[in-house]
């Protein structure tokens, strides 16, 4: 196959990946209430509607709150857990990691249902609290998985050298181990934020309070609403810009 054909093929796949997103963005400016291809003129109306929509703004606020708080708590519990797990005997470690991997491997729908049964059984109302608890639960394993390899790469002698030179264990941890595993902790935290924002299935089963995903699901299943197009365009633009910036920064980092 010639080079041009290969390039054409890859371009077609990229077209396939991006066509719906681009079309959605274009039609978020279309002055029509119906889901048709017909262009009825340019408007910002759907964006204005979006910012007057209290239900959507509430859902957005819930999503951001849950993402941040669950990621912070999961990062703290997860990092401490990784340090402890790292020091465990091989057998205990195996058992703990098997349990830790369960939420990662299990289908989201099973995790969601299992947590819902727990909340109903214990009597926690399905709302913001249960949503937060669920998100912490599925975030912790990803923090542990991000931090553990960094602990494995540590040079044990450094920590012992610090102790020999008179540092207290807590001081040595803070000054020697923490800086070494920090990249893993940050990766874990970012992982947690993203997973939390992206989650739909587990939130859907464990909360009656709408976050953005649940709001979108309910809105999409109802009748056509062009302000959903505006919402997705905004979300996509934010993610796109963030990722490009992060990527540029990490490329610069590597060059230096």
């Amino acid at each position: 196959m010639s080079k041009t054909l290969k390039k054409l093929y890859v371009s077609l796949i990229f077209l396939f990946m991006y066509a719906p997103i681009v079309v959605l963005a274009i039609y978020s400016f279309n002055d029509s209430k119906f889901r048709t291809a017909q262009w009825k003129g340019f408007t910002f109306k759907w964006y204005e509607r979006l910012f007057e929509n209290d239900q959507m703004l509430g859902a957005l606020q819930t999503t951001l709150y849950i993402a941040f708080v669950s990621a912070v708590i999961a990062t703290i519990i997860g990092t401490l857990a990784a340090i402890g797990i790292h020091n465990m005997s091989k057998r205990t470690k195996g058992v703990v990691m098997a349990v830790t991997n369960l939420p990662v491997l299990n289908p989201d729908i099973v995790t969601g249902i299992a947590l819902m049964l727990l909340y109903v059984f214990v009597g926690i109302p399905l709302g913001r609290t249960s949503l937060l608890l669920s998100h912490i639960t599925f975030n912790i394993p990803y923090v542990i998985i991000s931090v553990l390899p960094k602990l494995g790469q540590l040079n044990k002698n450094m920590y012992e050298a610090a102790l020999d030179l008179g540092a207290s264990p807590a001081y040595a941890y803070r000054k020697i181990i923490l800086p070494e595993i920090l990249p893993g902790i940050i990766t874990g935290f970012l992982f947690a934020v993203t997973l939390s924002i992206d989650d739909f299935v587990i939130s859907f089963f464990t909360s009656r309070t709408e976050n953005l995903s649940i709001y979108i699901y309910n809105a999409v299943s109802k009748k056509y609403d062009p302000s959903i197009n505006a919402l997705s365009t905004l979300m996509f633009a934010v993610i796109f810009i963030l990722l490009v910036i992060v990527n540029k920064r990490s490329v610069k980092h590597e060059e230096n």
Binding site: I228, I239, L243
Partner: peptide, 24 residues
């Protein structure tokens, strides 16, 4: 560019096809 769409909400990505594939 391949990774970016994965960071977008699955519901929205799926919903986007409705506009393209609708009978109108």
């Amino acid at each position: 560019l391949l990774v970016i769409p994965m960071w977008m909400n699955l519901l929205l990505r799926t919903y986007a096809w409705l506009i393209l594939l609708d009978t109108k």
